[in-house]
Design a protein around this nucleic acid. Structure first.
Lengths: 248, 248
DNA sequence: CGAACCCTTGACAGAAATCAACTAAGGTGG
DNA sequence: CCACCTTAGTTGATTTCTGTCAAGGGTTCG
């Protein structure tokens, strides 16, 4: 493991406050690995042996069932994922594949659980992270059930802008087919939906998003902190640190 | 608080292993309350001051957005809910209303967080519970995104049977309008969908569900432990203790 | 008995998935 | 450098699914 990565890892909310000795012990048992783009690094159903910490790159968490697939989240540095499965020592519920070449630290889940028991600050961090993850997916599910696809797209586009300090223009952090899956719709449908939003305050040209009339867009999206969160989204910008994405 | 309730609370996974003194302290700061049916006891957005422990009755967790509503879960004894909001000391993401007259213990979230820090076994229980909650809603979301409404209904009906030791017949634990909302569809749609399932191994007469051809139903529902879980569902049977429902 | 309320059914409108064709952009190999 | 291939994205036509509106049957409860 590269020594100059450690400070960055240490700065993560999950590890920031734990005792130095425990951090060192945890890191000592860990592996750093670099994955090429497009690799399935986790297959749903496999036992969760390692907590994953993203240092570089991008990873898609997705779910499969009977031939169908859907994107659940995209994780970018610096953040952790599949914490819940590690805690429970249970099989992964989601698969993960790299979207880009990625550097990732693998922390043995057994060590994680062990140190949880003897480092109070670490325990607090873990439970805080997990609670945040839970709330994040609750918000996500609320969006899926309460909003139609058009409202979801509008909300997403508006939310991304807000995360970038209300930027009037920005680049989509992911390709559209993936975004469509994340938002629970087909790429075709997303394409058409985006077109209809041009009359409602937002224009998308390729990867470029331009808010043309924020008020109109807000009227349509009706953003709500209990859905869109004060916190970053699971398909975030990668602006991170802070804010950090939370995904178990 | 009734003294004969305490042993039951103590047996909950969340409190089972903590030190007696800490349990007593926590309970000492708590309130027992009885709510009539149909009462909104938690409004989404309000600060989360109390962890709720169901002793008797049934509570619906639901979400609202711009005039629309959807059911997120139904909680039955003996289990806890809104743990995540308490841990984070954040506003509730969901509202809660009683479906029946309910007895509920309210545990101050401040005390919860305090004891978490000094009782390792309790900390382990909290994080385990939260991780289970997280995994539960991930499964739920997977079902919503990967299955169409017909498959969701079929899976639900089959899953309920399985939770009752593969009972060939059972009563629905909730009314159909609520079930429809939980499954992400309208009551009308559920009604029609159920009818089409009669050719696929399951018949529903009022609240009574009869599995007429399990194999056919399984073929359609394609149950999957990574969605339907080995664990009880958020719209469970109330058979509880064990299994216990997990909802944060 | 009447008033709600749940559930069902039908007719219709709207939304979304599917299938197919086409464009554009990026990468590969000659 | 160009031809070719692959893939993302778009667009159109069509079908399927789902929500909405309206009406009626059944049940419960005051």
């Amino acid at each position: 493991m590269r020594p100059d990565d450690l400070p960055e890892v240490r700065r993560l909310p999950l590890f920031q406050k734990m005792e130095a000795a425990n951090f060192d012990e945890l890191v000592g048992k860990s592996y750093m690995q670099t994955f090429p783009a497009g690799l399935e690094m986790i297959r749903q159903g496999d036992p969760a042996d390692f907590l994953h910490v993203m240092l570089e790159g991008a990873v898609e968490l997705y779910a499969k069932w009977g031939g169908r697939e859907c994107t659940m989240a995209v994780v970018r540095p610096v953040s952790t994922f599949i914490l819940a499965a590690c805690i429970k020592d249970a099989p992964y519920l989601m698969s993960a594949r790299t979207l880009e070449r990625s550097r990732i630290i693998l922390i043995p889940s057994a060590g994680l659980r062990e140190i949880f028991r003897r480092d109070t600050e670490f325990a607090v961090s873990v439970v805080t992270e997990l609670a945040a993850s839970f709330r994040s997916i609750v918000r996500n599910t609320k969006g899926l059930k309460l909003r139609n696809s058009r409202e979801r797209v509008a909300s997403y586009l508006l939310r991304q802008s807000r995360l970038l300090d209300d930027a009037p223009s920005y680049r989509l952090p992911v390709e559209k087919r993936l975004l469509a899956s994340y938002l629970g719709m087909t790429p075709e449908n997303l394409s058409r939906t985006i077109k209809t939003l041009e009359d409602h305050g937002v224009k998308v040209d390729g990867m470029r998003v331009i808010i043309t009339d924020r008020k109109k867009l807000v009227d349509l999206a009706q953003p709500d902190t209990l859905i869109d969160g004060p916190d970053p989204d699971a398909l975030g910008t990668g602006s991170s640190l802070p804010p950090v994405q939370r995904w178990a």
